[in-house]
Nucleic acid binder design. Sequence first.
DNA 1: TAAGATGGTCAACGTGGTTGTCCAAAACGT
DNA 2: ACGTTTTGGACAACCACGTTGACCATCTTA
Lengths: 154, 154
Amino acid sequence: MSTGDGFLLPLRLFVGFRQLIDGVHAELAREGHPELRPLHGFVFQAIGRDGTTAVELGRRLGVSKQAAGKTIDNLERLGYVERATDPDDARRKLVRLTDRGVTVLIRSAQIFDELRAEWAARIGPERLRALEADLVTATGAEAFRLDVPGWFGS
Amino acid sequence: MSTGDGFLLPLRLFVGFRQLIDGVHAELAREGHPELRPLHGFVFQAIGRDGTTAVELGRRLGVSKQAAGKTIDNLERLGYVERATDPDDARRKLVRLTDRGVTVLIRSAQIFDELRAEWAARIGPERLRALEADLVTATGAEAFRLDVPGWFGS
DNA sequence: TAAGATGGTCAACGTGGTTGTCCAAAACGT
DNA sequence: ACGTTTTGGACAACCACGTTGACCATCTTA
C-alpha cells in the first residue's frame, strides 16, 4: 500500500533537526560564539569533559583520524580546545576542552532544553515524550555518526 | 528547568532521518543505482516531473545557481537528467529527468513508503501519524533547504 | 631486542560550496 | 524602435573539509 506521503517523514525529521541546531547556534552566536558550526557542537560532545585523542575522536565521529585532526586544529585556533601531551604515552596528545569550550558545551545543553520546552509548549509535553520514545523505538540503538558532509553530498 | 536530555531530540531526529535516507539508497544501489548520493534524491524531487532550470533549482535548494549547475552536470553525466534548450527562451536550458531519473524518483517514493511501513509496524500506525503531525506542528511550514554540506560543516 | 601496532602529522587530491566576471538573450522604459 | 536593465548560464579562482598514502616516533609484544 503506497500512500505516497513517504517523503514527509524524512523531510520533517530533518527540518526539525535543523531547526534545533540552528536555534542553538543562533543563540550561541548571540552570546559571543559566532564562529561555531553545527558540526562543532557534536565534536564538543564527542570530546566530552574528560578529553580524548585525535584517533579516538575520529572513531567516535566516523571519520578518519586526519579529518579529526583538522577539526581539532580549527577548534584549537578558535580557542575551544587545547592539546596536551600525555605523560604516560609520548605518542598521544590529549585533546581537552578549554574553559571556553566547556562553557559552550554547558550552554548548548541548556539551550537545547529551552528549545525542547518550546516544542513541548507547541505540541504538549506528553506528546513530545511520546515522540522521543517512538523515535528511539523506531531507530534503535544506532549511534550518531558525524561524517555528514561526506555522507550527504559526496 | 533543565532536564539535561535536550540532546536526545536532535540526535534522534537526525538518526531517524539518516536511517531512512540510507535505507532508500541501499535499496537503490541494489537496483542498479549505486552512484546516487543522499543529496541527489532531494535534487530529483526539486526537479520534479516537469523539469526546471539551473537558477530555479538553486533557488529551491537554497544554493547558488553555480552550485546547482555543478550538481546538474554530475547527474547529467550519470544519465539521470538531460538539458534541453527552451524553444520560448533561448537563454534558459530546461533540466528534465530522463527515463532513468523518473524511475529513481518513483522507486524512491515507493521505498520511502515501505520504510515508513516498517516504522508503523514498530511503533504502531496511529503513533506514526501522530509523530508526523507533531513534527509538522513543531517545525511549522519551513521549507527544506539542501545546502547541507556547507551548512553543517564549513 | 627485534618486529609489529599505534598515534600524530604532512602532502596530494577530489568534491562541492562560494563569489566574481562575463556573455547572450529577454524584458522594459522612453 | 532602440538603448538600458534584468535574467539565465557558464567559466575561473578560491576555500572548506573530506579522503588516502606515506612517514616518523613511540609503545607493545613475541
